[in-house]
Design a protein around this nucleic acid. Sequence first.
DNA 1: CGCCCGGCGCGAACGCCGTGCGCTACGGTG
DNA 2: CACCGTAGCGCACGGCGTTCGCGCCGGGCG
Lengths: 245, 245
Amino acid sequence: MPHDDAPLPSVWARPRAPRRPPALSREQIVTEAVRLLDSEGVDALSMRRLGARLDTAATSLYRHVANKEELIELAVDEVYGEMPTPGPGTPEGWRAAAAAGAREMRAVILRHPWIVSVLGEVGLAYLGPNMMRYSEGMLGVFTAAGFGLEDADRALGTLSAYVVGTATGEAAWLVKLARSGRTEAEWAAGLWPAAEAAARPYPLLSAFYTAQRGKVAPATRDADFDFGVARVLDGLEAWAGRGGG
Amino acid sequence: MPHDDAPLPSVWARPRAPRRPPALSREQIVTEAVRLLDSEGVDALSMRRLGARLDTAATSLYRHVANKEELIELAVDEVYGEMPTPGPGTPEGWRAAAAAGAREMRAVILRHPWIVSVLGEVGLAYLGPNMMRYSEGMLGVFTAAGFGLEDADRALGTLSAYVVGTATGEAAWLVKLARSGRTEAEWAAGLWPAAEAAARPYPLLSAFYTAQRGKVAPATRDADFDFGVARVLDGLEAWAGRGGG
DNA sequence: CGCCCGGCGCGAACGCCGTGCGCTACGGTG
DNA sequence: CACCGTAGCGCACGGCGTTCGCGCCGGGCG
């Protein structure tokens, strides 16, 4: 049970100068926000709850962060910091380097699936330092492969769009799954009747769903992702081989 | 100025059975929600405001919709209803049909840019009837091109991921733009110093930004989108030509 | 040494939000 | 005419983001 924490009259109990360092920094706030988002999801992030986790009042956070939107942008770039800098990229090895960069980005998103819930407000957070570092590395991979700067940007844009789009669907699925508290197999089984009913008017979808029944595994998602990356890189490679734009 | 609408004692003014039809339907609610989202954005959608627009109380909406999340899912599928059914797709013309489907999807998202703010919660809204119809059509395009059912699904997944990823970035940009009330050129000009500063440590990004200065136009976005679609389709076509998986 | 000042943390408050509860009004049914 | 199921809604609860102004405190300056 919570104890009564009304101020005690005793001198002995009075804490002496408990806060020598500024007690709060933007870095701490962002770090804790990411932790909260990771563990409880995007709906659980409120200034009050975040303040409570930092043993401070919600309003104190505003000394270090303009508003919640800015906090979220900082949190997004914070997690992008987990991506290693892509590259260096050699003329022969550029496909592997680009694919590795794509996989890293997907991995980060799936480790922090709340990110896709805010991507629509933040865009791709182009200007965050970690995103910049990543983009520079990827541009290096493509230019080393012989792409001109403008072509490298379009290649990166195409690949990144694929990654974000894939990860959006995957992360949304993972979030629903986690909220449900069930295993993936249980959840899929529970969803199946609805899916089958919704697909009934459509022969191709029905055939596909019945063929796929029971095959929903993380391995399938990984393979599907790699498939898409390979096709995108194939397309970019063929285009570069034809002389590009 | 708003008039006083306290109940009048006069019999003549009393409205007689003003509500013969059920006065409210799920369809009306969803339609009005989409209108509100289109005109004022995702933050403006609240049950109270939506109720006010329908001349009803917020709580009345719950007779027709389980909760806000369900309402949003319905709204998402509602806008997907704007997409024509893709197809039919001939062995020769499958690329054009697939590209048309992709363009329609992007167009819908850009017409309703709030959708990317909720896509992370809703996933790709796989089970909505309009999304099902779209998927069936696209699967038909790919199977007519000679793809097996499973391969058609992966092709569709790859292409859709690209579309969603691209549109996410574009829509987020458009929303920020609209909220700012400035023209695209003004907004880009205002953002430029920050972008340049953020890019300064990175030679490729700096070179690219300075080269691109002033070129941000809708035409560029359209061209970039078509570029990516072409590369993805190139990749899929080459893979199918090699015999697929 | 004393005083002021700038910045930090915070309590209170404002105007919203989603939604559960239980009442009322009313058309259709026996 | 009594009953019942249901649509609509008033109220209330707990929580939200954010603003404002106050108190506190350490450091610089007179």
